[in-house]
């Protein structure tokens, strides 16, 4: 095949470098005085998170302030990243509760399976993203921390209402 370079005869107004520069300057000036800016001024303005946003976890509690978790062991089983550490305990009435419940947020991949699988609607992924800490071990959230957090939790996808209407 021969090399084919398409040569287009363009009108002067299109190929004139000087005139193209002038129209470019007009465009940039227009944007400069355009009051619409795309930046989100972060600490003052924030994103509206999706109701299905999956962020750091939260453990919901009963009215008397105890974790709803019954230590059934479903969430550590389903967790694909193996980030949940659960040691079950049982009180004198035979009620199971978590002795240790820790989530390593660095290992977590925020798939939300723990929330989906939980029979007691205890563990949830949260609509929250401001997670900065000064040390790595602060990212292992223990039960006290999981229950004390107050941010909104993820709403699970409902197959009956796939678009969330």
């Amino acid at each position: 095949m021969a090399i084919k370079v398409k040569e287009v005869e363009r009108p002067i107004s299109e190929v004139s470098y000087l005139r193209a520069t002038v129209s470019g300057l007009a465009l940039t000036l227009k944007h400069m005085f355009d009051p619409h800016k795309v930046t989100t001024q972060y600490p003052e303005q924030r994103w509206d998170l999706s109701p299905r946003w999956r962020g750091t976890h939260r453990m919901l509690t009963t009215e008397d302030g105890k974790a709803k978790c019954v230590a059934c062991g479903l969430c550590p089983t389903v967790c694909p990243a193996n980030c949940i550490k659960l040691v079950p305990g049982e009180d004198e009435d035979g009620n199971r509760y978590p002795l240790v419940f820790e989530i390593d947020e660095f290992r977590c991949i925020f798939c939300g399976y723990c929330q989906e699988v939980c029979p007691e609607e205890a563990i949830h992924v949260g609509r929250h993203y401001e997670n900065a800490e000064y040390s790595r071990d602060r990212f292992v959230y223990d039960l006290a921390r999981l229950t004390s957090q107050t941010h909104a939790v993820c709403e699970m996808w409902d197959p009956a209402d796939p678009k969330g209407e």
Binding site: V5, E7, R10, I12, V15, S16, Y17, L18, R19
Partner: peptide, 16 residues
């Protein structure tokens, strides 16, 4: 003259 006659894409032109 410069703007309308001389500058026909010649001031900066493609290689070919």
């Amino acid at each position: 003259l410069l703007f309308f006659v001389l500058d026909r894409g010649r001031i900066v032109s493609p290689a070919y």
